[in-house]
Amino acid sequence: MMAKIGMMSFAHMHAYSYAASVKQLPDATLAAIWDDNPKRGREMARKFGAPFISNVKKFLAADVDAVIICSENVKHRPMVELAAAAGKWILCEKPLATTVKDGEAMVATCKKAGVGLGTAFPCRYAPTLIEVKSQIAAGKFGEIYAASCTNNGSYPGGWFSEPQLSGGGATMDHTVHVVDLLRWMTGKEFTRVYCENGTLIHKKLKTDDVGVVHLEMEGGLMVSHIASWNRSRSFPTWGDVTLELIGEKGVISVDAFNQKVNVYCDKVMRAEWVCWSGNMDLGLVKDFVAAVDARREPPITGVDGLKAVEVTVAAYEAAKRRKPVPLTT
């Protein structure tokens, strides 16, 4: 079968890579593009050779099986609701929502509409992280006691630091991946959150750009995580995802994208790390397309997205109240 995929908004840069992934898959077509920014939408339509449909109702009435939503964070909910009402399968960019209420509503709406809702957590398709998960699952490290993690990045600019569109800054943007990875790797849920964050690097931003999140998981597993936009413009790459896991029988550390070539180009005058590893976005989109074909729930669900939202929202609350916030599992 040929899954017909529509793109809803290119506000989040990951849309480029997802659209390119759809184009690469033999059993999927990029059927249509809609964007609430018509200029951007038309440009993307040209770039990816797909029709641009400016009216969202017409877009959803078109011959499209599923949509990939890459809008600004706060627009995820209204777009998911529209797509669900039209019976489309949905892959939504992370964070799924900026409030728990929105996330819950999105999950409930899709369930009621009988459509699959997936959250875009492509890190689950990084070969390095798959390897770590499989070693942990094999019991090589015994019980995992503690973890220290990072998801650092450079400041993405634009709407990411407009709170009314993003719902928050670096803590909002860069907590969910690692939270999802830890749930995925350990099979445990989060029970408690503390956070220190602030606007510490880019002084003029309206959002935080560094968040240190302390987390507890079921069984007392202790975690610290740095969610940041602290990478300077001269840093050789965009950022990182790293985890160090302390287990009963040993320790394992992973720097997920440290499969790189160091490049020193005089024209650039900035050292560059060029990652040569597999394309994790392709894996994510491929599995989503398979779920669309089979009309089943995507492997990374809306609930997975919601769980990560709960932790992130609790982190902001903890930072504001300067005390830990419990999570009910």
Partner: peptide
């Protein structure tokens, strides 16, 4: 294994 976060008086966060 110890995970420690300081908020310095200057506002700097140290982990």
């Amino acid at each position: 294994y110890s995970l420690v976060t300081f908020r310095m008086k200057s506002g700097v966060i140290a982990h």
